[in-house]
Design a protein around this nucleic acid. Structure first.
Lengths: 160, 160
DNA sequence: CTATCTGCAAAAACTTTGCTTACCC
DNA sequence: GGGTAAGCAAAGTTTTTGCAGATAG
């Protein structure tokens, strides 16, 4: 059966793992669990926003006001190589990142640019069936572009 | 002879529309058909490579050796706004573009990074069925990541 | 003719790099 | 203590901008 979408609007109250759990994951991935990594990885886990490096920097600033932007770049690179974080390919100039590395897809609102995660078993079932031209698929990324419910509501009530 | 059932690799011999046709499309889109636009749009139509701005610049160089990179940026922007060209969201730093604006999807080889276009009616049939959380879909972009047939062949014969 | 587009140069935005010091394990 | 990571600054890459002159329609 199809998994219902879990993306309730502004955002689901993030159930962020505690720092002990974050440290464990980071060490399990073969990395040292530094305060910077904890903060950055924690920030990424605690949002559904697919932020840019800049945005991550902003979010972490209260916790680590002196953190240089360059360190965010290096940290995200490490986390990505370790498989804890994924780059999300979206329109726009700056790269965006996601700490949700389990299989999922994206709803992209072309009106407000928000990106919502969703899972769908029917889509996951697609991969093994794919066999185009000798291409051997490993995973399928689906981006559904359209208008989110919030924008639909605003557009119908707000105007006129 | 008949078309073979499987597309042959490096690329299908591009059937590039002539410049009269290109001019018409550009004017129909409400833009002036300048030599720069003809060259750039033609270059993008004539490749299946999803090139970056830099790559387009290279390709066009023989025809317009003095063309500044900045003009390629501006031209692609115009063509994109006019709906003649689309940005393709792929991993990597520079944006990539596609003159194929008809509905299609992408096979991304994670070994050699080539991006192949493909169409699939089953995928197209997906959109109307999508109805996640009040989101109203307009179109679905699918990226299938995996290993292309060329890399499979190379990996099995080349090694050992 | 004239609104649009090109060429050019500077600047802004984004990302990487090299190296020294700090600190996790 | 040793090796990895952070901090810092400079440079590299990619993209945007503003304006003067050129040109397609």
């Amino acid at each position: 059966m199809t998994t219902p979408p879990h993306a309730s609007r502004p955002r689901p109250p993030a159930n962020v793992p505690d720092s002990v759990e974050l440290s464990r994951r980071i060490r399990d991935a073969g990395l040292k669990a530094t305060p910077q990594r904890l903060a950055i990885y924690g920030a990424l886990i605690g949002t559904t926003q697919h932020p840019t490096i800049e945005a991550i920097h902003e979010v972490v600033r209260p916790k680590l006001p002196a953190l240089p932007l360059g360190t965010v770049y290096k940290t995200i690179e490490s986390l990505e190589e370790a498989g804890l974080v994924m780059e999300v390919s979206l329109p726009g100039n700056a790269k965006r990142y996601d700490a949700n590395v389990s299989p999922h897809h994206h709803l992209v609102c072309t009106s407000c640019d928000i990106v919502l995660d969703f899972r769908d078993d029917a889509l996951d079932a697609l991969r093994p069936k794919v066999r185009w031209n000798g291409f051997r698929p490993t995973h399928v990324k689906v981006q559904v572009h359209g208008i989110c419910s919030e924008c639909q509501r605003r557009d119908s009530t707000g105007s006129r």
